[in-house]
């Protein structure tokens, strides 16, 4: 009897299960192209990097590639990359936060125009923008020509860390402004009014209400500037010349020389830093403030 009962239960449930399956299948079919894409261009390359990073040329397991980060040249490149990306992230933050506040407070029709101006450079090719900066900063470039013409002392910015930071800030500033602005416009004006109503002055309202509520945007802004700054090799190549080597350049060189194992090993080290900042993002940025501009 127990068996027949169970059978009955199963047969009774069947239509429901069937419906569920067809629904899942529908969703699956829609996501199929993306899943293929993800497997082919994200998952497999990641596995390959993991494989190359943890093996030597003879396919046997080793930590040698990863431990190469301890090599003075590589370590120096990583530390310099960390230093420059921290700097450029800070500068971006200092420029972006006040700008986002001003944008949020001025309820002008020109608001969307200003946002457009911020986004506009992103529509031009990243390489072109950076090469343009190279032309501006060069010893005989646009900037120095103008300074010469005005009988002012010329500047030697090109091929210095300052030039690289400038390039990073210029290229990644929109990624800091937009997440912060997006968070700020979502803060209910009456929440700010409520703080004022309860006795807080402008400064207290900012510190206790606006700043904490805008933190998710700040965090995602920081990550979105910090990660590409840390891994860049284009900006450092174009604006840093051959003198300044960042970890991105080291990895690029290893791959160019055919040392896939070493390049992958160092990439894995860099990935630890990126995963770390991704972990911070997912912890604070639950609403995905940053994701809408990618």
């Amino acid at each position: 009897m127990a068996v027949s009962d169970k059978f009955k239960q199963l047969t009774e449930k069947k239509p429901e299960i069937g419906l569920l399956f067809s629904r899942v299948n529908k969703v699956k079919w829609l996501s199929f192209p993306y899943i293929l894409w993800m497997i082919g261009f994200i998952l497999i390359p990641l596995i390959m990097i993991l494989y190359y990073g943890l093996t030597n040329g003879e396919n046997s397991f080793t930590f040698e590639n990863i431990s190469l980060i301890a090599n003075p040249v590589n370590r120096g490149a990583l530390l310099l990359a960390l230093e420059l990306s921290v700097f450029s992230t800070l500068i971006c933050l200092l420029l972006a936060y006040p700008l986002a506040i001003i944008l949020n407070n001025t309820k002008l029709k020109s608001n969307s125009f200003i946002v457009l101006i911020i986004i506009l450079p992103m529509w031009m090719n990243f390489l072109l923008r950076t090469i343009a900066w190279q032309n501006i900063l060069e010893r005989t470039g646009v900037l120095n020509t103008i300074l010469n013409f005005l009988h002012l002392p010329t500047l030697n910015i090109i091929n210095t860390p300052a030039a690289i930071i400038l390039g990073m800030v210029y290229n990644f500033l929109p990624f800091m402004v937009l997440p912060i602005y997006n968070v700020l416009i979502k803060i209910d004006k009456d929440v700010v009014n409520a703080a004022r109503d309860l006795g807080a002055n402008g400064g207290q309202t900012f510190l206790k209400i606006i700043l904490p509520l805008s933190l998710p945007g700040v965090i995602s802004g920081i990550t979105m500037v910090f990660v590409p700054s840390l891994t860049t090799f284009v900006i450092s190549t174009i604006l840093g010349g051959s003198k300044i080597v960042l970890i991105g350049n080291v990895i690029e060189q290893q791959f160019r020389l055919g040392n896939w194992n070493t390049g992958s090993g160092l990439s894995l080290v860099l990935m630890v830093f990126i995963l770390f900042s991704m972990a911070i993002i997912s912890k604070y940025d639950k609403e995905g403030e940053g994701s809408n501009i990618w």
Partner: peptide
């Protein structure tokens, strides 16, 4: 913030 009155807002405006 210097007035001796307090407000209850339409959409609560809790922190």
């Amino acid at each position: 913030n210097e007035r001796q009155l307090n407000t209850v807002f339409q959409k609560y405006a809790l922190f």
